[in-house]
């Protein structure tokens, strides 16, 4: 009976450790997705001169979840007729953000981008998108550093923590 309890505790803590480490690697994966999406958006705007809602429709077919959800929701809001693109952008962010592994920094970057999206000429749209991409690049580097640093640590911490708890309880 004791042994079964010990195994259960160790299994649970190992699982918690793996989940924990996943949030770290998930963030850098989603950051890569978001960057790819914004790069597509840049191409759609600068070379395709595609209106936003159509461009977002193309993008959500190109990138994976959950980033595609954001562009899908943004597109739907534009098609339904919102007062400004910024409002639709912010509302879509509020809706989708909780399903992502993004942190406050990414939120700020996207908010800033949303403030001018669709309201300027091509040149300026491109500048804003480039700027956002540079910021995201920095976040991605940081996320990747964290990933290498913490991913393994969280996993071992889970297992070891479980063992510690078992030893203490026994």
């Amino acid at each position: 009976m004791k042994l079964l309890g010990a195994v259960l505790i160790i299994l649970a803590s190992t699982w918690a450790g793996i989940e924990w480490s996943r949030t770290v690697s998930e963030r850098s994966r989603q950051l890569r997705q978001l960057k790819a999406a914004l790069q597509s958006l840049e191409a759609e705007i600068v070379y395709g001169i595609t209106p936003l809602s159509m461009a977002c429709g193309h993008i959500c077919r190109q990138v994976g979840h959950p980033v595609s959800w954001f562009f899908d929701s943004f597109r739907k809001k534009l098609d339904a007729g919102h007062s400004t693109a910024y409002e639709a952008w912010i509302e879509s962010m509020e809706e989708v953000w909780k399903y992502t592994a993004f942190k406050q920094e990414e939120k700020e970057i996207m908010k800033q981008l949303g403030a001018t999206i669709g309201q300027q000429d091509r040149e300026h749209e491109q500048k804003q998108l480039k700027l956002a991409l540079i910021h995201l690049e920095r976040e991605e580097n940081e996320a990747r550093n964290n990933q290498t640093k913490y991913e393994r640590m969280f996993k071992s911490l889970g297992v070891l923590g479980g063992i510690l708890l078992v030893i203490l309880l026994i």
Partner: peptide
Amino acid sequence: KDDAAQMLNKLSQYSLYALE
């Protein structure tokens, strides 16, 4: 002013760059 902004948004489909 809001009316005008709305009109312009709808006219450009929220994408002023497409109206250059």
